[in-house]
Simulated assay, not measured.
Amino acid sequence: MDSHTHDVALIGTGSDPDDPDFSGFAMAYHHAEVYQRLENCELVACADIVPENAAAFAETFDIDEGHTYEDYQRLLTEAEPDVVSICVPPAIHADIVVDCARAGSVDAIHCEKPMDLTWGGAQRMAQICWRRDVQLTFNHQRRFKPSWAEARDLVDSGKIGDVERVELAPPNIYDWGTHAIDFVGFVTGDRPAEWVIGQIDYREEQQWFGAHNENQAFGLWEYDDGVQAVISTGVGGSFVPALFRFVGTEGTLDVDPDGESETIRWRQYGDDWEYRAIEEGEWTEPIGDAIEHVVDCLETGAEPELSARKALNTTEIIFGIWESARRRGRVDCPLEIDDNPLHAMVESGALVPEPEPEPESSSE
Score class of each variant (00 low, 15 high):
Thr60Arg: 15
Leu351Thr: 02
Asp82Gly: 05
Pro304Lys: 11
Arg267Thr: 01
Arg327Glu: 00
Arg265Ile: 04
Tyr174His: 09
Ile49Pro: 09
Asn213Phe: 00
Asp225Ile: 00
His179Gln: 14
Asn340Thr: 10
Arg245Thr: 11
Tyr69Trp: 13
Ile86His: 05
Tyr174Gln: 06
Ala180Thr: 13
Asp116Met: 05
Phe186Trp: 10
Ala151Cys: 11
Ile181Trp: 02
Gly210Arg: 00
Val295Trp: 07
Asp225Asn: 15
Cys46Glu: 12
Glu250Asn: 12
Pro51Val: 12
Glu303Ile: 03
Asp48Phe: 14
Thr300Phe: 04
Ala101His: 08
Val235Asp: 12
Leu168Ser: 15
Gly14Leu: 06
Asp271Glu: 15
Met1Phe: 01
Ala242Trp: 02
His4Asp: 09
Ala101Ile: 05
Thr118Met: 10
Arg74Ile: 03
Thr5Gln: 09
Glu358Asp: 15
Gln228Thr: 15
Asn139His: 09
Val247Asp: 12
Gly349Pro: 13
Gly12Val: 05
Tyr35Ile: 05
Met27Lys: 05
Leu253Glu: 03
Leu76Trp: 08
Ile128Leu: 07
Ala45Tyr: 10
Val88Asp: 05
Trp273Asn: 05
Cys87Gln: 10
Gly189Ile: 14
Asn313Trp: 04
Asp156Arg: 15
Ile317Glu: 00
Phe209Glu: 11
His67Thr: 15
Pro17Ser: 04
Leu335Met: 08
Thr252Ile: 15
Trp208Ile: 14
Glu274Pro: 00
Val294His: 14
Glu80Asn: 03
Ser15Pro: 02
Val163Asn: 08
Cys129Glu: 05
Glu303His: 02
Ala126Gln: 09
Pro341Cys: 07
Tyr202Leu: 02
Asn53Leu: 10
Glu354Cys: 06
His93Pro: 08
Gln216Asp: 02
Met345Arg: 01
Phe61Trp: 14
Arg245Val: 10
Met125Pro: 06
Tyr29Arg: 04
Glu70Asn: 06
Asp339Tyr: 03
Pro286Asp: 06
Thr233Leu: 06
Pro170Asp: 14
Val88Ala: 07
Met27Asn: 04
Ala101Lys: 02
Thr118Leu: 06
Gly158Arg: 11
Ile278Leu: 08
Ala94Phe: 00
Ala32Cys: 06
Val235Ala: 07
Val163Arg: 13
Leu136Phe: 13
Val247Lys: 11
Leu10Val: 14
Glu70Trp: 01
Val155Pro: 02
Ile63Leu: 11
Gly320Cys: 10
Val294Ala: 12
Gly349Phe: 09
Tyr72Glu: 09
Ala94Asp: 11
His31Arg: 04
Asp224Leu: 01
Thr284Asp: 06
Trp119Thr: 03
Phe246Arg: 06
Cys129Leu: 05
Gln135Ala: 11
Tyr69Asp: 10
Trp148Asp: 05
Ser232Asp: 07
Pro81Thr: 08
Lys113Ser: 11
Ala9Lys: 05
Leu43Cys: 09
Glu42Ser: 15
Asn172Thr: 15
Gly301Val: 07
Ile11His: 00
Trp195Arg: 07
Glu336Thr: 14
His110Glu: 08
Pro51Thr: 12
Leu306Gly: 08
Gln228Cys: 11
Asp19Ala: 10
Arg143Val: 14
Asp332Pro: 04
Thr284Phe: 03
Lys159Arg: 14
Asp116Phe: 04
Val83Phe: 11
Pro257Ile: 06
Ala32Gln: 09
Thr68Phe: 12
Arg330Met: 00
Ile49His: 07
Tyr202Val: 00
Val187Arg: 01
Ala149Gln: 13
Thr5Arg: 02
Asp62Pro: 09
Pro341Thr: 08
His110Asn: 13
His31Gly: 03
Asp153Lys: 14
